[in-house]
Design a protein around this nucleic acid. Structure first.
Lengths: 200, 200
DNA sequence: ATTTATTTTGATTGGTCAATCAAATTTACC
DNA sequence: GGTAAATTTGATTGACCAATCAAAATAAAT
């Protein structure tokens, strides 16, 4: 019984989270309201309050949901590779591929990270992006292992991590129609290769 | 008389814009209101409506104000240099230096770009970042002239522009205390150098 | 079948907001 | 000094919002 009801609860929570993602994509964080999420999910406003503590709780859970999906997608592809270099390429590939294929999720993620703030008004974008962000840590690990095995040259890991993540993030922002994601992927890979490769 | 009153108007507008920047830094785009801007500027709410069409107009003008300051700052430093390579380094230097020195302005800029939307709900961050963004165009020109004079190798200009801008933007997001901006600047310069330099 | 627990609804409440506007104040001009 | 124009105030209005809650509906248990 406790299990059964927990299934219902989980299904409802996911339904509400998915509706939140859609609304975020359509009208953005600034204009979102529980009433609009409820309408999108085709439930009453009270039901959202029943399954989540408050509005912030809905958005926090949506953020976790989005981060988890993205991380799993990338990790799955990277872990298929053997060498640090192949893993690095797979990381870039998968990151850009995820963005191309899950635009709605990415907009929603962006909207939350750039708008949500902690109770003491610290923006989420200043809290994460650091040691705490699993993707950051993961990329750092790849770069580190490549240097350990002397597969890579002696660059600064933190700086290259920041640069790669920035280069990936930036591509979400550019207008899709005018931007050839595939070409960018190839170019970014060859640029990063020039940085990590050992001088011959 | 028309001149005098226009002076007063301009002074008020700037006062309100500066207050808006402060409020954006402190509480963010989501929580901003005309009442809070008025309080920060120490004027009445009605006065803001007298000098600006509506709330969006205040924020649009604040965005233009911030973009102009940033662009002028960078352009001034880049234009002192002669060669494309020195200009490229100066561009990176100045961009990161501006971010380090004008944190409040940068937060405000970020808040507007990642939150404001056009009337048909298109986020500003999808409108700019392209051919329209003066900084983008400026960086592309530097890269282009470097290739024209065969000072640079044959990389894709658009891709490198996106990568550099992403690498610069990303550094706003990382936690200041844990991040050595000076070190990042040097590393980014040496990474970019590896990409633009001709094979010897 | 009846009772009990869980889930869902939608009206309500107190609060904030953008924008308006009549009245007050200040400034410009003669 | 007096008048007209420009500037500034702050109360007001109508819309929207988050959160609450009593009542209804559904499901589970006996």
């Amino acid at each position: 019984m406790a299990d059964q009801s927990s299934f219902i609860t989980e299904a409802r929570r996911e339904q509400i989270i998915k509706a939140t993602i859609k609304v975020l994509d359509e009208i953005g964080f600034v204009s979102i309201s529980l009433a609009k999420i409820a309408k999108m999910a085709k439930v009453s406003t009270g039901l959202i309050s029943y399954h989540f503590k408050d509005k912030d709780d809905v958005l926090d859970n949506t953020l976790i949901y989005l981060l988890t999906i993205q991380f799993d997608y990338i990790k799955e592809r990277v872990s298929e590779e053997e060498t640090a270099y192949d893993q690095l390429i797979a990381f870039i590939d998968a990151s850009l591929a995820y963005q191309g294929a899950h635009t709605v999720n990415n907009i929603a993620l962006l909207e939350i990270i750039f708008n949500a703030r902690t109770e003491d008004n610290v923006p989420y974008y200043r809290v994460s992006s650091d040691e705490e962000d699993p993707l950051y840590v993961y990329l750092q690990e790849i770069l580190h292992s490549g240097q350990e095995t002397h597969e890579f040259s002696e660059f600064n890991i933190k700086s290259l991590t920041t640069m790669i993540q920035g280069a990936i993030s930036e591509s979400i922002l550019v207008n899709e129609e005018l931007f050839d994601l595939e070409a960018y992927k190839n170019d970014l890979v060859s640029m990063v290769t020039k940085i990590v490769e050992k001088k011959s």
